[in-house]
Design a protein around this nucleic acid. Structure first.
Lengths: 340, 340
DNA sequence: ATGAAAGCGCTAACAC
DNA sequence: GTGTTAGCGCTTTCAT
C-alpha cells in the first residue's frame, strides 16, 4: 500500500472533479454569492466526498491574515499559567484561531524570543502572559508589523491588558491580618529570579498597609525568594530564626505559603494559634490545606484577554484595560494573635 | 504616523535593494552554495539592516513542510500536562518547530477535534498527550496525510509512543503496602469522566497484587472517582463509612491522595498510624505533604516524545516505543498496620 | 453565474 | 555565479 504517497487534494482537483472552474469552486466552498445553487451543491458534494479542506497556508498567503495567535508564557506547569492558557485557548479556538505556544522559562529563552522573534510573520497577534514587557522588548515587538499585542496577568501600561490589581490584592491580605490584630507581620516576597526584577504591587501593599496602621516596618520581617513551595519553605525557616517571631505571615502567593506552612508545622508551631498565614491566588490546593487567601479568577482573565484581542483584531471599539476584582477567602490559617 | 500601514519587506525588496536577482538573494540568505562571498555579504547586510525575515508561510507553501506540530492535550492546568508540554516544547523549539496547542477538555471538544481536524494541513506531526486514541479517532487522523503521529503519557499500540508502565507503577505501590503488612487495602480508582472509559493498568495492578498475595479482594474497598482533589476527598469519605476500615489506601494519583488525606485527618484519624496512603506521580506537592508515592518523570517523557518525533520526521531508524521506569519514594504516609 | 488570469512571497530548475 | 522562470494552492479581479 502506498497510502504514504497519497497527497492532499487541491482546489484544482475538486474543481476538475466537479466540472467547474477554479474560481467557482473557491466561491462555492466559501459560501460566497454568485454561484448557482446547483453548482454549489455539486462542488460541496465533491469536496465532502473527498474530505477536502483548503490549505490554510495557501489561502492566508493570499489573504494576508494568518489565523494564528502567539501565546508567550514563562511557565506552564504552574497552575496560574495553565489556567490562563486554558481560558485563552477556549475563546481563540471558538473564533477559529490557532494558538502558537512559546515558552520563555528563563532569562535566556526570553532574550532569544525577543531577539529572534520566532513568531514573526506567523501570527496576527501575540498575548504575553504573566510578565511585564520591557522597553527594549517592546521595541523588538514592533518589528511584528500589524500584529496586535495584548497582555494578560501582568501590569502593562503599554499594551491593552487584563489583570488584577496587585496592590489591592495585597491590601486585602494585609487588611485582614491587621483587622485580626496582628502588628508583627512578616512578608514573604516572591520574585521570578529568571526574569528581570519588577516593582511589585504586592510588596508595595505591605509597606503601605503597615504605614497606614502606624506600624514601623521591620526589614528583618521581609524575606525575598523565588516563586515556589520549597522556596517558601526556606524563606519561612529564615523567618523562624528571628529572635522575635512574627505573629502573622503575608505570602505573595499560595504556593509560597504552602511551603511556609510546612516549615511552621515542622518547627512544632501551630497555625493559626502561633502564627497566622495568608496567601494570594486561591490555588486549588489552598482549600485542601485550609489556607486563607485572596482569590483571583485566572481563567476568566484568560477568557477576557482573548476576547479583548478578538475585538482588537476586528477593530471594534473596546475597553483596552480590564482589572478584575479579588476577594478575601477566610479559611483556617488566620486568627487573632494570642497576645493581641 | 502611518507606521500601522508599513508592510513587511519581501524577498523581492531585498533583492532589489541589494541589486541582485531574486534567486541569488534567496540562496544567499539560506546559505546555499553558488553565491560569491561578496554578493552574499551584500545581501545579508541589506537583509540585516531592514530586519528582514522570510515569510515562513510562503516558503513552506513551496517546500511542503509546515514546520509546525500540533500538541493535543485534555488538560492544561493540571501539573502532569503542563510538565509534559514543557518537555515537548523545549525540544521542538530547539529544532525550529512551532507548537500548535489544541485543548480537548471534554468529550465534546474531543469529538469536534477529531471531526473537524483543525490541525489538518497545518502541521507536520501531531502529539497526542495523555489519552489513548480510539479506533474511530485513528481513522479520522488518517486524513492528515503525511503527518507523523506520536503519543505521550498514554498507552498506544497504534502509534509510536513514550509512557510509563502503569501496571508496574501500580504494582510498586501495592508491593510497598503489602510488604508493610497491609492486607485490607482500598483503592481509589481515578478515571476521566470526560473521556471514554479506558482499561487501566493501575487498576489491574491492584487486583493482580492482591491475587498474588492470596488476599481476597473486597469490592467495597474499590471506589471509582474523577481525577481530582475534591473527588479523592469524597471517595475517601465513602471508604471511611465502611463497617471495617481499610488499613491502607492506594490512590491512582497523588492529587486524589491529597484529597483523601484531608478527609482522613478531618475524620480524626492519623496518617499513617491509623491509615496508610500511597499515590502515583510524585506531584510537586507530594513532598510538601510527605506523601509516599511512585515517581514518574513527566518532563522527560515530553522530551523523549518530541525527540522521537523529530527522528520520525527525519526518517531515522529509531525506537518507536519507550517505556520509562518509575520508582517508589517512601515518605511519611505509609507504615505497617497497627495490628498487622 | 462562471472561467481565465494575475499574483500572494517564496523556492527550485533552468539557462546563461 | 547569477538572473529568469515556473510553479506551490489558493483568492480575487476581470471579462464573458
Amino acid at each position: 500500500m502506498d497510502s504514504e504517497q497519497e497527497r492532499e487534494l487541491t482546489l484544482a482537483d475538486i474543481a476538475r472533479l466537479a466540472g467547474v472552474g477554479l474560481g467557482t469552486a473557491s466561491r462555492a466552498l466559501r459560501g460566497l454569492p454568485n454561484v448557482s445553487p446547483a453548482t454549489r451543491q455539486k462542488v460541496l458534494e465533491v469536496a465532502e466526498r473527498h474530505d477536502y479542506v483548503v490549505s490554510p497556508d495557501a489561502s492566508q498567503l493570499k489573504k494576508g491574515a494568518t489565523g494564528r495567535v502567539a501565546v508567550v508564557v514563562p511557565h506552564l506547569s504552574r497552575w496560574f499559567f495553565g489556567e490562563m492558557v486554558e481560558g485563552i485557548e477556549s475563546v481563540l479556538r471558538q473564533a477559529g484561531y490557532d494558538l502558537l505556544l512559546y515558552h520563555v522559562g528563563n532569562l535566556q529563552d526570553r532574550q532569544s524570543f525577543f531577539e529572534l522573534l520566532p513568531a514573526r510573520r506567523k501570527v496576527d497577534a501575540v498575548i504575553v502572559v504573566g510578565f511585564p514587557v520591557e522597553e527594549a522588548e517592546r521595541q523588538r515587538l514592533e518589528l511584528m508589523l500589524g500584529a496586535q499585542i495584548v497582555a494578560a496577568g501582568g501590569q502593562h501600561e503599554v499594551y491593552p491588558h487584563v489583570c488584577i490589581d496587585d496592590l489591592k490584592a495585597g491590601s486585602q491580605a494585609m487588611g485582614h491580618l491587621l483587622a485580626l490584630g496582628h502588628r508583627r507581620i512578616a512578608m514573604i516576597e516572591a520574585i521570578d529570579p529568571e526574569q528581570p526584577r519588577q516593582p511589585s504591587g504586592r510588596s508595595a501593599a505591605y509597606h503601605m498597609a503597615l504605614n497606614d496602621a502606624d506600624i514601623e516596618s521591620d526589614p528583618a520581617l521581609v524575606v525575598t525568594t523565588a516563586w515556589g513551595i520549597e522556596q517558601g519553605s526556606t524563606a519561612m525557616a529564615h523567618l523562624l530564626s528571628l529572635a522575635e517571631l512574627p505573629t502573622a505571615v503575608y505570602a505573595h502567593s499560595d504556593e509560597v505559603a504552602f511551603g511556609a506552612m510546612r516549615t511552621i508545622r515542622d518547627a512544632g508551631l501551630r497555625i493559626p494559634e502561633d502564627i497566622s498565614i495568608i496567601g494570594i491566588d486561591d490555588h486549588p490546593h489552598a482549600a485542601l490545606l485550609h489556607l486563607t487567601t485572596i482569590k483571583q479568577d485566572v481563567r476568566r482573565q484568560g477568557v477576557l484577554t482573548a476576547q479583548m484581542l478578538l475585538g482588537l483584531l476586528r477593530h471594534d471599539e473596546i475597553e483596552r484595560s480590564i482589572t478584575l476584582g479579588t476577594h478575601l477567602i477566610v479559611r483556617r490559617t488566620t486568627a487573632s494573635p494570642r497576645n493581641g
